[in-house]
């Protein structure tokens, strides 16, 4: 027998390579205003915001087991807060976005207390009811345009930057920054003690509770944090759109169905999944969107087939073939026996 020395590491070769490539890609993306056209930048900005929403939904559903179909509640809430805080509060849009996040956290507390009483799939529909209450509620506020909505005044838009090109660049960078912020936050959270507890809960709720993990509290924290970030993304979305109405702000298709599609296609319960899913979704949308309803039916069909045939999504397929992990969450035991030792992976 040869003596083996074991090292335990979280890092992987793929992760190191990916980090280098990621840094390069990031630099190219940050420089987009100098090389990309206006329409491309708009599209990429939108992609980043969807990526952020998808990562957040993935944290909720894929890790915390809180399958929500009502995230549009917080997207719309954030959007409306942006309008209310800038129009009536006189806040700078960036300050309004930050405050919208805080208000999102605040409102999610009573919401969570209520709907956490519902289990599983009933929780899902409960979140939908909340989103409907928000939609109907905001439709009653005549100062914000009631059912027909309102536009962001030009002065507020200009407060962001005088020149249109600068505004567009800023808007793009905000979207990119939001996506990076969310993915980093999710990644760091999942690596933390709380995050590991979450993974334990997902894998076995009974065992986790017997280990003394307070399931309700952990899920509650995830829900509140996710709501806050979703509200901020919502504010950003409507800062780009410049117009808001209850039907657009609380749209289940736009802010939940597409987001779920992205996560399911990419791979639920992985950090990489939403990134891949967002790329696939936008590729499909750009090629098929002219087909209208047929396009939406195709999306539904693809999601169903994916869920049944490859429940871990595209990333799951890639991973099962190549043992890749770009965002290493688990620990690996590496037995260094010779110069080329095989790596065995063990999820923590």
């Amino acid at each position: 027998m040869t003596t083996q020395t074991h090292t335990i590491t979280r890092s992987s070769n793929a992760a190191r390579v990916a980090a280098v490539i990621g840094a390069l890609v990031l630099i190219v993306l940050i420089a987009a205003p100098w090389w990309a056209g206006r329409a491309d930048m708009r599209l990429m900005g939108e992609l980043f915001l969807y990526l952020a929403l998808a990562s957040l939904w993935n944290l909720l559903a894929g890790y915390a087991g809180l399958v929500s179909v009502g995230q549009q509640a917080f997207v719309g809430f954030g959007g409306y807060m942006l309008f209310a805080l800038t129009i009536f509060g006189g806040l700078h849009p960036l300050a309004a976005i930050a405050l919208a996040g805080m208000l999102g956290a605040l409102i999610s507390v009573p919401v969570a207390v209520l709907i956490f009483r519902l289990r599983g799939a009933y929780f899902a529909i409960g979140t939908w009811v909340i989103a409907e209450v928000f939609r109907l509620g905001f439709a009653q506020i005549s100062a914000l345009g009631g059912g027909s909505g309102s536009s962001l005044p030009v002065a507020i838009v200009k407060s962001l930057a005088d020149k249109r090109a600068m505004r567009e660049s800023l808007s793009y960078w905000l979207a990119l920054g939001a996506a990076i912020l969310v993915i980093t936050a999710v990644y760091l959270f999942l690596r933390s003690r709380k995050g590991l507890a979450l993974t334990a809960i997902r894998d076995n709720e009974l065992a986790a509770s017997s280990l003394g993990i307070d399931i309700w509290r952990t899920k509650f924290i995830v829900y509140v944090v996710t709501s806050a970030l979703t509200a901020m993304i919502g504010a950003l979305i409507f800062l780009q759109k410049l117009r808001i109405s209850p039907d657009a702000a609380f749209n289940v298709n736009d802010w939940t169905a597409f987001v779920i599609f992205i996560v399911v296609i990419g791979g639920i319960g992985t950090i990489e999944g939403p990134i891949i899913g967002a790329l696939v979704f936008f590729a499909l949308r750009e090629t098929l969107a002219d087909l209208g309803t047929i396009y939406l039916m195709v999306l539904g069909l693809v999601a169903i087939v994916m869920m049944l045939k490859a429940p871990k999504g595209i990333w799951g397929l890639i991973r099962s073939r190549f043992d890749l992990q770009i965002f290493p969450l688990g620990y690996r035991v590496i037995a260094s026996e010779g110069p080329t030792s095989p790596e065995t992976e063990k999820e923590a």
Partner: peptide, 16 residues
């Protein structure tokens, strides 16, 4: 997840 997401996909297909 599977029943929830499959019926959600079904809902999108039916509606459209």
């Amino acid at each position: 997840l599977p029943p929830l997401l499959v019926t959600f996909g079904l809902s999108v297909i039916l509606q459209n």
